[in-house]
Computed example of a mutant assay.
Amino acid sequence: MADDQQGPNWKLEDDLETVTLTFPTGPVVVLTLNVAQLEDILKNLGDFRARMKPQIPEKYAVGQKMVFAINNPSWFTEPELMQGNSLLHIRDPRFGWLSYHIPSEEALKLSGYLQGQVAVKQAGPQGPRN
């Protein structure tokens, strides 16, 4: 391994059950992580990132370049029984099932936006058909 390498080297092993992480330090440090250990690292890194500065912007910058989007993720929604709001669960293949508590007013707005986007797509370039 070259001494001038800046960051760690990640490798998914052939068994598809372990990841090897090599730090190009002196001496070289090699960690082999199973799925549970890797998920623990992801959770902790996410928790740390949520507390770091600069914070993730509260508002999405409309028109920004989309770098990566999950295509047609599995999702599930259910009522949140304590306050009568909604729980939205979305499967991210990188991070597992992510769950979001959506207040009723926001759920109503979201459903309206989604319905509006579907209506525009269905209408096509000529407008609605009667």
Rank of each mutant, 00 (worst) to 15 (best):
A36S: 15
S74Y: 13
S74N: 12
F68I: 00
L33I: 05
M52F: 13
W75V: 00
Q37W: 05
T25W: 08
I70K: 01
V30A: 08
A69D: 09
V35T: 09
T32V: 10
V35Q: 09
S74F: 04
F68P: 01
L38N: 02
L42D: 06
V29F: 09
M52I: 03
L16Y: 11
V29D: 03
A61N: 00
E39A: 07
V19R: 03
K53L: 10
L33M: 14
V35K: 14
V35L: 05
E39W: 05
V62M: 04
V29T: 14
E17W: 02
V30L: 02
I70T: 08
T20M: 06
P24T: 12
F48K: 12
T25E: 05
A50G: 14
Q64C: 00
I70E: 15
Y60P: 01
T32I: 03
F76N: 06
K65Y: 00
T32M: 02
T18H: 10
L38W: 04
V67Q: 14
G46M: 04
T22H: 09
Q37P: 12
N71T: 00
F48Y: 06
E17M: 04
L16K: 14
L33W: 14
P24Q: 07
E58A: 15
T77E: 13
E58C: 05
N34H: 04
L16M: 11
T20W: 10
M52W: 09
F76E: 07
G63L: 14
D40V: 05
F23G: 14
T32L: 01
I56A: 10
L33H: 13
L31Y: 15
G46E: 06
T32H: 10
G63I: 01
N34M: 04
I56T: 09
E17D: 11
Q37H: 07
A61G: 04
P27Y: 07
K65S: 02
N44L: 07
P73H: 06
V19P: 01
P73W: 14
Q55C: 03
M52P: 06
P24K: 11
N71Y: 02
L33S: 09
P54E: 13
T22G: 03
T77Y: 12
T77G: 15
K65L: 04
V35F: 13
F23E: 05
R49T: 14
P54S: 08
T20I: 08
S74C: 01
L38Y: 08
V62I: 08
K65C: 02
R51L: 13
V62Y: 01
P54N: 08
V35N: 06
T25P: 13
G46L: 10
N34R: 14
R51N: 14
L42I: 07
F68L: 07
I70S: 05
M52Y: 06
P54R: 03
K59G: 07
P54Y: 07
Q55F: 10
L33R: 10
V62F: 05
M66Y: 03
P73V: 03
L31P: 07
G46A: 15
N71M: 00
L33T: 15
A50L: 06
D40W: 02
S74P: 04
A61C: 02
L31R: 08
K65D: 04
M66H: 00
G46D: 01
A36R: 12
V67H: 08
R49P: 09
K59R: 06
A69N: 09
A61P: 02
N71V: 01
T77M: 14
P27H: 07
V29Q: 11
A69L: 02
I56S: 04
P57S: 11
K59Y: 11
I70W: 04
F68Q: 11
L33K: 15
K59W: 11
N71Q: 05
